[in-house]
Structure formats: C-alpha cells, structure tokens
Design a binder for these strands. Sequence first.
DNA 1: AGATCTACCTGGTTGC
DNA 2: TGCAACCAGGTAGATC
Length: 286
Amino acid sequence: MPELPEVETVARTLLPLVQHRRIVLAEALHPKVMEGPLPLEAVVGRTISTTARRGKLLLVPFIPALPEHAPGLHEVTGIAFHLKMTGRLFGYAAGVVPGVHTRLRMVFDDNSQLFFDDMRTFGYARVLSQQSLEQWNFWQTLGPEPLTLAAKEFVQLFAGKQRAIKALLLDQQIIAGVGNIYADESLFRAGIHPASSGKDLSPQKLERLHGALVGVLQESIAACGSSINTYRTARGDAGAFQNTFAVYGRGGQNCSLCTTRLEKTQLAGRGTVFCPKCQKLGDKHA
DNA sequence: AGATCTACCTGGTTGC
DNA sequence: TGCAACCAGGTAGATC
C-alpha cells in the first residue's frame, strides 16, 4: 500500500525516466481512471519538468507554456496520481504493450512510455490547472507534511482532540501521507496505545510520537519503501522496509522488545496491531 | 463534530 | 480439489 515513503520512492525513481520528456500520446484505458474536470488528452504536447510528492499524491509538473508569465487559471500545469492500494507507475521502453491492469498510458517524444497500472482500480489520475486545484477538496484540505513539520506544530495538531490517536494519524486533513503501516509502526516506536485519545497524551508523549514517525518515514524512504503486496518502485524493484516491521502484519507473534503476544484489533475501521505491554494509553486522564 | 458504516475493487488466503 | 467466504485498505459519502 503506497504511503508517503513509497510515493516518495516512486517520485525519485521515476524522475530520470520522465524528466524533460514531451508527451506525444496519452490515453486512458479504463473508464474510471480519470478524475476532475480536465481530460487526459489535455497533457499532450506538454513537457515534464520534474516529479514531486504531496501526502500520498505523486505530482508530475509540466514546464510552463509561457515561462515568462504566471500560468493562467485554465493552463494545464501537471498531472497528479493517487496510487491508493495497488497503483503502480512504471517506465517502459518503446513498443512495450499495456498489461491487463494498465489503466493509463503515456508515450514520450523518444518513444519511451509511462504506464499507470492498478489491479483494483481505486487509484486515479487528475490533470492539474490552477482552477482544477482550487476545485479539488482533497487537495485543499490536505494537512501538513510530517517530514517538514516542527515538533511543536506536530503536538498542536493533536492536543485536545478527542479521537483516537490512530484515527488522527490516518486523517489526511490533520497530517498528510500517513497510512495504516506507518501509523502502527510509529505508535509502537513511541510506546503509545493506538486507542489513546489525543487529549490524554502529554506534549512529551506527542513529541515522542513526532520523533518516531519522522524516524520510520525516513528509514523507510532510505529502504525504498515497504513492499507488502504489489508496491514496486518506478523501475520495478521491491522496497525493503517491510523486513523491519515491529508490529504491522505481525499480529499473534511476539513483541520484539518484551516477547508479549502482539494483539490485533480493529480501530478506525483498520486492522491494528500493537503490543499491550509496551504501548500504554494516554497518561493525562482528566 | 465525531463516530461508525458502506461502497468501491480483485487477487490471495482461509475454511469447509 | 473446488469453491465460497473473507480480507487487505484510502477516501468519499451517508447516517446517527
């Protein structure tokens, strides 16, 4: 499941495959792959400037049509991809034929290609313009980036909030890019029970969570992400961070710190694994 | 406002 | 072996 480190890895591995290439063909191969007001065909003729990430969104900005002017309200400025559960972006040589799960294809001026594959069709692409972004609620309400957030600001996001800390971490409007894997892993590393209410966690505990989250995200990026099932880099390589999971996918096994049996429950509608001994509920009981 | 549920999907795993 | 039921989970939308 591509979360922040996986999307970051795709952005980095995709860059040398697409940078400065002009799009000569773009076709949607599945009726539900596009979202938003602009059709995919609007990207034809544009040249890719770089790749980037915002939350779990992969961004592919274009070189401005008129570099000396600010882009107009309707000028196409790039394309965004949300990989959701099983989305993948792969660079391919000329002539490679789309697979059964290929939802979108672009061909560049050197005949190399970019495929968006997505077995479960949850993912999507959205052509961007200033107006398209203004009308995009998900984009407009996306919370701050965890890797560039100061500890004090991080604490402020959760202080006084009633909801379970795991639900807060998964809420993209509160903080962008965290999914089920890194929510569970960072809570374990910080010694916080996933059901703790935000308001019951002391600033010190929340600062610990900030350090734990930044740590797991950075370590995962260094390992090219976590390959649970289908995730791969843009070059088709698997990540390695799944080999270091402390809790995710390890329900019923023993805690690596204290050998207690890890518990698996449902929280915020998601499978949640934690150590009942190492992870304690908030200490600030009112 | 927040909590909880369902829909969207399909391949892999589990259970009978 | 065969097949049905279940599970994975990010986000939107509905309901209470």
